[in-house]
Design a binder for these strands. Structure first.
Lengths: 232, 232
DNA sequence: TCAAAAGTGTTGTCCCTACACCCATGT
DNA sequence: ACATGGGTGTAGGGACAACACTTTTGA
């Protein structure tokens, strides 16, 4: 019987930074931690990687369990593995960031967990190294969104250009010229204009668009330069 | 005494995809595996994460041990954690890619390990999921190198533009116009022209350059569009 | 009629690519 | 002299940012 004798074994967890957009501000979803230590403090959604699942599986399972949502946009970020990051026992955690449509979440809220949306810039202090994870996720989201059309994942199926515009400004924490933005985003060819208008925001109303799924899936790897004066 | 009772524990390893450049072709450094199972098969440089080190520490330690080199460019890629990826025992592995100056390596080769450079496109089959790791690393290297000035890490302190040019072509597996390339790369302002010329490649000789460390460190996060017709 | 937001037009600038051509030098 | 890479010049086109303007419609 072959074995890797004498090597230490560790717990492996996943933690998810869940981003949402309420139409005005970027938010993250936090939960009150249900186990010791630090019980009842705010933390990211997380859980241990089970014996028969990959970390990706685990992250999807955790999200399903805590939000009720499946098929969420989920991206592996990095591993957090400093020896002392969990005071009880050595635990390595794989950080993920998730993008969800906040309204979809509210529709099927799972009340078993005390979860709450917080403004990204006004959130409680989190346990362990979770604040670092949020900072890293924010940075990575910005980076990725500048080059790839992923922010659609935080909007409903039907959305308007002004909505998308505000979202881009929120994520990048900057002002973007509305006129150039709408042209740039439509010129990607990823949007399909619908006949219907959203009239809640203005008298004139803004046309709804939906994503061209086919082109979206084909182009999700392409570089798009979605941000003016691209700098990080 | 608080504990996370009943959760499974796993081995955690690191595996490094080490890239090098011999002046003509992109290569990777492989080792003959020294333990069962699959002993004497070719594999990536790897090792288990020790009790008092982070995965990043472990990757640096493994590289130091097997190549003798310190301060190597090392970047975390992703975690590989499918339940059955190691047939002996569940092991999660953090993949890293490393860029090293192949000549520096040869200068202080560690003969304790049977290590060998292989052409990236002509390498032996590797154990477990290491072939997948190499494919992922190649893709990530290409992606990153298109936007950030990291390929310098594979060249000596003094290098010529034609050398850099071939390296870019190798990494991206494409032809790049030499004339436009040299202008684009010098226009980044990251290079300092030296008085000396390399005359091994041509009669005229090509000027040596070195990296402007100060600007390099300041700009390593900037987007640079180093590849024409940027597509992935 | 007016305010307010949506969205189109316009223009100058800069960058990028393609390609021609000159440069330096060992043989 | 001439072959061989190294490197610069140049011109056309396209993208992009800046900003003016029109459109739509509820109040």
């Amino acid at each position: 019987m072959i074995e890797y004798s004498g090597q230490p074994h560790y717990l492996v967890a996943v933690d998810c930074i869940v981003f949402g957009f309420d139409g005005e501000h970027l938010k993250i979803l936090l939960v009150k931690r249900g186990l010791e230590p630090e019980i009842n403090k705010w933390s990211l959604m997380g859980g241990f990687v089970g014996a028969n699942e990959s970390p990706d599986d685990a992250a999807n399972r955790v999200l399903k369990k805590m939000t009720g949502l499946e098929g969420v946009y989920l991206e592996q970020m990095q591993i957090y593995g400093e020896p002392g990051r969990d005071p009880i026992e050595r635990t390595l955690s794989v950080g993920y960031f998730a993008l969800i449509d906040i309204h979809k979440y509210e529709a099927q809220l799972n009340d078993d967990y005390e979860a709450e949306w917080f403004l990204i810039n006004d959130r409680p202090k989190l346990i362990f190294d979770h604040d670092q994870m949020v900072a890293d996720a924010r940075k990575k989201l910005r980076y990725k969104a500048a080059l790839h059309p992923i922010l659609f994942e935080m909007l409903p199926k039907k959305f308007t250009i002004p909505q998308l515009h505000i979202l881009f400004e929120e994520v990048n924490d900057t002002k973007i010229d509305t006129r150039n933005f709408s042209r740039k985003i439509t010129s990607t060819g990823l949007l399909i204009k619908l006949a219907e208008k959203d009239r809640t925001g203005s008298k004139k109303g803004a046309f709804y668009f939906k994503l061209d799924k086919k082109k979206y899936n084909a182009n999700s790897q392409a570089f798009l330069n979605l941000m003016p004066n691209l700098k990080i």
